[in-house]
Amino acid sequence: MTSAVELQSLATQLRRDAIRMVTHAGSGHVGGAMGAAELFAVLYGGGILRHRPSEPDWSERDRVVLSNGHICASWYAVLARTGYLPLEELETHRRFGSRLQGHPARAKLPGLVETSSGPLGQGPSVANGLAMALRMNGSDARVYCILGDGELAEGQVWEAAMTAGHHRLGNTVYLILANDVQIDGRVSDVKTQEPIDRRFASFGWEAQRVHGHDVDALRAALGDDPDEGDASREATGKPQCFVLEVEMARGVVAWEGLAKWHGTKPSPKEAAAALEEIGEALGYEDFPIVAGNNNGARP
C-alpha cells in the first residue's frame, strides 16, 4: 500500500505540474487544479480507482467524469504521473494541436476522457448514464464525478442528483471540491450552496464531509470498508456524495482562498516563488519544458 508520505509527494508534484503547465501555457486555471491535488493523488495513486494504465479502455474500469473541466491541469498531470500520458506532453497543454485541450475533450483523448466537459453542470448527468449502463451490464465498476461547489448553481446538477437518488444509483460517487470560491468571489456571497451535504442527503444520497487536503482522511473516506468489502456501499442503493473541504490554490499561502487564482496565470516570477514555497516532491522530477511555442504539441 502506498504510504501517506508517498501520496503527499505525488500531490505536491501535481501542484508543481499545474503551476508550470499554466505558466508555460500563458493561460489556464491554476487555483482549482492545485486544490484538487490530494484528491487526484489518492484517487489514482491511493488504490481508490479500479483502473489499468496499460489498458485505459478496460471495460471493468471505474469511470472518472471531470465535470469542472477547467481544473484539468492537475488531472492531466496525474494521468501522466500514473502512466497514461507521456510526461513530455504536459508542456503542450492549451496549445494548438495538443491533446491536452483547455477543457478535456473526448475527441482528442478517446478512452481517457470519458466525456468532454467545460460548460458546468453537465458531468453528473453523463455520470448517471454511465452508471445506468454499467448496472444494466452487470458490472460492479463505479462512476466518480468530480464537481466544484460554485458549479452547484447549475440546475442540471440537481436534476441529475434527483435522478441518481430516485434510480438508486449506488455505483455513483460525486466528489465535490468545496473551496467556497468562484470567479466573482466567495460562493457564499455569489449564491449560497451550503449545506451541500445536507442538500444531497435530502435528495436520497449518502453524504459526508471530508478534509480534502488530508490524504489519510481522503483514503479512509473514499476507500472500501476493509471488513465489508466493496459491496458495502452499493448495498444501500444510495449514491455517495463527498464534500471535500479544500482551498483554492492550496500550497501557496499568498494565493490561497483568492478568487483571482481561478483563472489568472502566474507571472514567471510568481511561479518561481510559488514553486520555491511548495518545494520539490520526493521521488519526482518536473516534466521537461523544451522551450519554444508549439514544441511537443501533437498533431
Binding site: R63, R106, E114, T115, Q122, P124, S125, V126, A127, N128, G129, L130, A131, M132, A133, L134, M136, N137, G155, Q156, E159, A160, M162, T163, H166, H167
Partner: peptide, 24 residues
C-alpha cells in the same frame, strides 16, 4: 430498458450521452 427521467430534459440528454458512451 425504459428510463423515466421526469421533467428534466437537460438531464435526460446528458444521461443519454452517458448511456451511449458506455455502449448503449
Amino acid at each position: 430498458r425504459f428510463i423515466q427521467m421526469g421533467i428534466s430534459e437537460a438531464d435526460m440528454m446528458g444521461t443519454a450521452a452517458g448511456l451511449a458512451l458506455a455502449g448503449k
